[in-house]
Design a protein around this nucleic acid. Structure first.
Lengths: 190, 190
DNA sequence: GTTAGCATGTAAGGAGTTACATGATTTT
DNA sequence: AAAATCATGTAACTCCTTACATGCTAAC
């Protein structure tokens, strides 16, 4: 299976719901990615090109000179998923491997949890949990190992970092708990 | 002035306190950078090389065959700041521009706040604050703009993101406040 | 005497950024 | 008619990752 950078997944996921052109897509991407990062055109268009080359999306030229009054928006190239693209997206949404535990991967996957199988959701949440727990352990060790030698700014930074991790762990635990609860209701798997 | 990636600053800052060889330096870097990222050898050694080429650090070969029993550790190349390197570091620590507000830049700068002028500290903290405030505003707008159309996972993510931002803003405010307090007390440091 | 960890690097390549280049459409 | 914004791309460059290549030293 291909490497599937987070950006690719986000593009495919957004285009599945709504075919769009690049400029519009970028705005949705920046909302979706939130504080993670901003997508530039220099990143977006090459990505769209490579997805097109792979046959996962196709481009429909919407003429400007001929008839721009289809709706209020003037568009030039509208991107949409091909059948192969839909299949590929469905495959990507079954992944629950290490890539889906890290900050960016997890952020993007969460945005598509609505169309993710509940067993996959659970594995992702648990993977993410253990990732955060590892980080927390490393930070604590670090903090304990060199008590005296750190100035107040560094210790403040680490204290705040630890607190943030604790809150995020708690948050994930809540998500996992609500996942287990609704497991009996909606889907038939347990 | 040169661009000064966060990694360079971290290296210079660490080497000023303690000359070390690469392998050891990497461990300190990974502690310093914490959850931000891990530095690989493929990133570290080229960086050390370029700093050497710039004359900011120098390399001292510590022979292994001849006499390894200097202390318990066998080292091969020890890196240390040159006078030019110290000057350059001092210059970098005066910077309080946009690079010092972003996640990575701020994280690294905070680690060296102990040797940063209090006026510079304050500017950095305030820049960071406004960065976070911008993010918060964007998130809120995003949240308000499309109330109904988001599933529970996305809204949970955004709610948690907003809460984290609020806590971080509060944390920064505390740092700024304690900065102002100690400003009157001592010119040098506390 | 072999495994594990210490120690230093290089080569190829991925994923992105900034700056540039171009032109259409809408608003003022 | 000028300015802002919409819209699509390319080229050069930066920074980092992965995988490789090499050898020393400590411990079992």
């Amino acid at each position: 299976m291909r490497k599937a950078a987070a950006l690719e997944l986000a593009i495919l996921g957004l285009l599945k719901d709504t075919p769009m052109h690049g400029y519009e897509l970028r705005k949705h991407l920046n909302h979706l990615l939130g504080s993670l990062r901003a997508v530039s055109f220099g990143a977006l268009y090459p990505a769209l090109k490579s997805l097109t080359d792979l046959g996962l999306i196709d481009q429909t030229e919407t003429p400007t000179a001929a008839g721009p009054a289809l709706n209020t928006k003037r568009a030039r190239i509208t991107y949409a998923l091909t059948p192969a693209g839909e299949r590929h997206l469905a495959e990507l949404l079954l992944d629950s491997g290490p890539d889906t535990w890290d900050d960016e991967g997890f952020g993007v996957r969460l945005a598509f949890f609505g169309t993710t199988e509940s067993t996959v959701r659970k594995r992702i949440l648990e993977g993410r949990r253990s990732r955060l727990a590892e980080r927390r352990a490393a930070l604590r060790d670090n903090l304990a190992a060199r008590r005296e030698r750190i100035d107040k700014y560094t210790s403040e930074l680490q204290r705040h970092g630890l607190e943030s991790l604790d809150r995020e762990l708690h948050w994930i635990d809540d998500l996992i708990a609500s996942e287990s609860e609704s497991a009996g209701e909606t889907e038939s798997d347990s």
